[in-house]
Design a protein around this nucleic acid. Structure first.
Length: 431
RNA sequence: GCGGAUGUAGCUCAGUUGGUUAGAGCGUCGGUUUGUGGUACCGAAUGUCGCCAGUUCGAAUCUGGUCAUCCGCCCCA
């Protein structure tokens, strides 16, 4: 009989037990930061109506980018980020929520693109958002970045440090308006600026798109700094001060690893103001490990109430899985936390052994029993060794009779006979 | 959708200019006397050499196709 494949589909992730514990540890710490910062967890559906996921009605075109399918007449798809579902949720629960509303989602997201290093088809994202009705101060932009930064800090001993690059869509909108670019030119310039770092011939391409005069002015932003444009127009002045205020606030919250980089644009078209990306300092080959920005109108298709938000997400899978695959994380600390392996020698010892296991667990001591009790003792102690148990509790006929357990310290090999109560006491004091 | 690379044991890979029964390490299982692991020694199992066709006396090896995986691009809503 032909065997079926054991590998998951390309772009899907499976972790080993030790990797999973590492992953869970990071997630737990980040959630701790969010809890302290007053965020509520939302767990939204993985599948949304296709019309919720996209405005385009070109089914074939978007099918290559998203996981889409159809049941009966309902077209649906797997979510590709947390923001779209959140907007729908907020719009549908306006009466149930208090604004400004802080929410986070830790969930799997799906993209139909070709997988490559650091890009998966199924991956975890930690999305955090602050939403307001009608308006939301840009002060929240800084707060969300600060929170995100603290989340990274909480796991920096595992994944290294990050730096933050901050851009602003308003700045460019004001810039394009000042340069009197057409919509088409603006879009072209937007894309080029977004890819600036990848392009060798940025300026020539830009000249091609918007003309020499405008191209040179745009390029001046990068050579002379965005500040030199502060007095060119009212909107430019406002955008530049917004960026400065933002940086000042970040500093006041102790965030020192952020810098303005106006070439940061981000792909999602729904951003309208500040945009930011987080990059790994220690592993610069990683793509952005998190990012986000402000969006003013994302929920407009769900509600007539204006919902304004600033949101961000951490690519948890990207951050962790890539590093684990490259062996950049010391996994020793995520080893199995089992304290006691209880080894009954023969089925006649099992009842007593089970009783011991129960007592240990009741005292919050992690214990497992090897219940193939008729197997050779060698197998049992090997098992205890493999799961890296701190102690083996050996229970044979003698021990059952005397009610004393042979307690073996697996690291030193030392062994002593103790009553059940003394065993509990020992394990309790050591761990 | 485009380009490059790679498909050999559960995993990582080696297989010389095509030449007998296809190899290693790790892992797994068994053993090195009966209630003691980590290191050591001995032994065992496991492969349609990705799939299909072609060239040849003979193909893991060469050719064509196909599929899959990885890397990069496009894209990133």
């Amino acid at each position: 009989m032909e065997l079926k494949p054991t590998k998951p589909l390309s772009g899907f992730i499976e972790l080993t037990p030790v990797q999973q514990r590492c992953f869970d540890t990071c997630v737990e710490r980040m959630r701790g930061v969010l809890n302290t910062a007053g965020y509520t967890r939302l767990d939204l559906p993985a599948i949304e109506r296709a019309e919720v996921l996209t405005d385009k009605d070109n089914w074939d075109e978007i099918e290559t980018q998203m996981f889409l399918f159809q049941k009966g007449d309902t077209k649906m798809g797997l979510r590709y980020d947390g923001t779209v579902g959140l907007s729908r949720y907020i719009a549908g629960h306006l009466n149930d929520l208090v604004f400004p509303f802080r929410a986070y989602q830790f969930a799997r997201n799906y993209r139909g693109e070709r997988p490559q290093r650091g890009r998966y088809r199924e991956f975890y994202q930690m999305d955090i958002d602050i939403l307001g009705l009608e308006s939301l101060s840009t002060n929240y932009d800084a707060e969300i970045v600060a929170t995100l930064s603290r989340m990274y800090d909480s796991i920096s001993d595992i994944v290294g440090r990050v730096k933050i690059k901050v851009g602003n869509r308003r700045f460019w909108n004001a810039m394009f308006e000042y340069l009197k670019l057409t919509d088409e030119q603006s879009r072209a310039a937007f894309v080029l600026i977004d890819k600036k770092d990848k392009l060798k011939d940025f300026l020539p391409a830009l000249i091609d798109a918007v003309g020499e005069k405008s191209a040179n002015e745009i390029n001046d932003v990068f050579t002379n700094g965005y500040w030199s444009f502060i007095n060119k127009s009212v909107n430019l002045k406002s955008a530049v001060s917004e960026m400065d205020d933002f940086m000042r606030l970040l500093k006041s919250m102790g965030i020192e690893n952020a810098e303005i980089d106006v070439s940061i644009m981000r792909g999602h078209s729904y951003y309208t103001g500040v945009v930011f990306e987080f990059f790994s300092v220690d592993y610069p080959w990683l793509p952005a490990v998190g990012g986000g920005g402000r969006y003013e109108n994302l929920a407009s298709k769900f509600s007539k109430t204006k919902i304004v938000g600033v949101g961000a997400s951490i690519g948890v899978s990207r951050l962790l899985v890539a590093l684990m695959e490259e062996n950049k994380i010391d996994m020793g600390r995520f080893e199995n936390p089992i304290v006691a392996a209880v080894l009954p020698m023969g089925n006649s010892s099992v009842p007593f052994a089970m009783g011991v296991v129960n007592k240990l667990r009741a005292k919050n001591i992690t214990a497992v029993a090897y219940l193939d009790a008729e197997k050779k003792f060698k197998n049992q102690i090997e098992y205890a060794d493999k799961i890296k148990a701190k102690f083996s509790l050996i229970i044979g006929e003698d021990e059952v009779k005397s009610k004393e357990i042979s307690v073996k310290d697996m690291a030193t090999g030392e062994q002593q006979k103790l009553s059940v109560a003394d065993t509990v006491k020992l394990l309790k004091t050591v761990y």
